[in-house]
Every structure is written in C-alpha cells, then in structure tokens.
Amino acid sequence: MLCGLSKPTGGKASVAGFDIARQSEKVKQHIGYMSQKFSLYEDLKVKENIRLYAGIYGLSEKQIKEKGERLMHRLNIYDEQNTLVKQLPLGWKQKLAFSIAIIHTPDIVFLDEPTGGVDPLARRQFWELIYEATERGITAFVTTHYMDEAGYCDRISMMVDGKISALGTPKELKENFNANSIDEVFRTLARGAQRGE
C-alpha cells in the first residue's frame, strides 16, 4: 500500500510527502522498492538490468553509465557485468537488486524481507549496503523476521494483529518492555496475539 501497489480502502497516509491514496504515481517517483521475491529480469545481463531501471527512473545516458559503473565496482561484480542475472548467486542478486532499487537516490527505499534465504556473511554485507545508503540520506524501511536485524535499525515498529503495538528506538523498546534483547520484546508482544498461527 505504501508503495502504491494496493489501493487503500480508508484512512490517510503519506510517503515522501505525497498522499498514497491520491498521488500514488507521485509516490513512485520518490521511492525505491525491493521485494522479497527476487524481481530483476533474470534473462537480462547485470549491466542491462541497471540500464533498464536507471532509464525508467529518468537518469540520463551519462548518469546511467557513471552510476552503473560505480555500482558494479562497489559490489565487486564489474567483471560480471555481462553475466545473465540468473547465473548470479542469491546473495549477489539481492545486493544487486538493492543497489538498483536506490539507483535514483530515492527519499525512501522499501525492503520487504530482503535477506530471506541469504547466508550470514551475505546478510552482513547487505546491511553494510543499507547503512551506506542511509548515510547518503536515503531512509530505509525494512520488514524482517529476524529480530537481530531489527536491532540494526534506528526505529522499530512491531505489529501485532495488524496494529502497531510498539514503536521506538531499540533502546527505548528494551527499556519499556524490561527486556535484554529485541527478541525478548517480540516474544512478550507476540504472546498477546489474538490471531492463531
């Protein structure tokens, strides 16, 4: 809904300063999105995927070339630029997908369970990329099942039965719930859930 994929039935929300109900196309110009299902074009080369999305977001040919090269250098896949995306290992794919999602330097990037099925090392590297992005002023909005990952964030919102039941910095949450870790906070909240498994 926040990315403009589903239509809200009621209520009010704004993303990057635009109303999601009425200005969903405007929202789309200012966000990046990476789904949990890998969704770059597998039958296109690394370089071609970058070119396609950079082009879609209106970057000029010069920018596409510069940004693309910087991106491939950063991910250490410069030598793989002519490899079809489907031949890359999952960890690389995810990093590539993320980098492409922020190629136009959006205000905010939505990451939907980005590290599912990725090994711990690749997960670490992935979070480094997220931190780099936030340093450049891009807000990262992450959903995750891993509570240790949640601890990397500046602000956490926990939802139980579709309602936000806790919201704050990791430190605040731990203090409020008298817990040692985010995982404990989560367990406390989850116990109160009405909905079955």
């Binding site: 990315c3 994929l5 789309k28 110009q29 789904s35 969704s39 770059l40 999305y53 209106g58």
Partner: peptide, 14 residues
C-alpha cells in the same frame, strides 16, 4: 507469474 511486473509497478512507468 515471475513477479517482475511488481517491480515495474512500483516505478513511475506509466
């Protein structure tokens, strides 16, 4: 079916 259309749908492609 592959899911790539979702990625396109969050972009400003009209």
């Amino acid at each position: 079916e592959i899911g790539t259309i979702e990625q396109i749908n969050v972009t400003p492609v009209n």
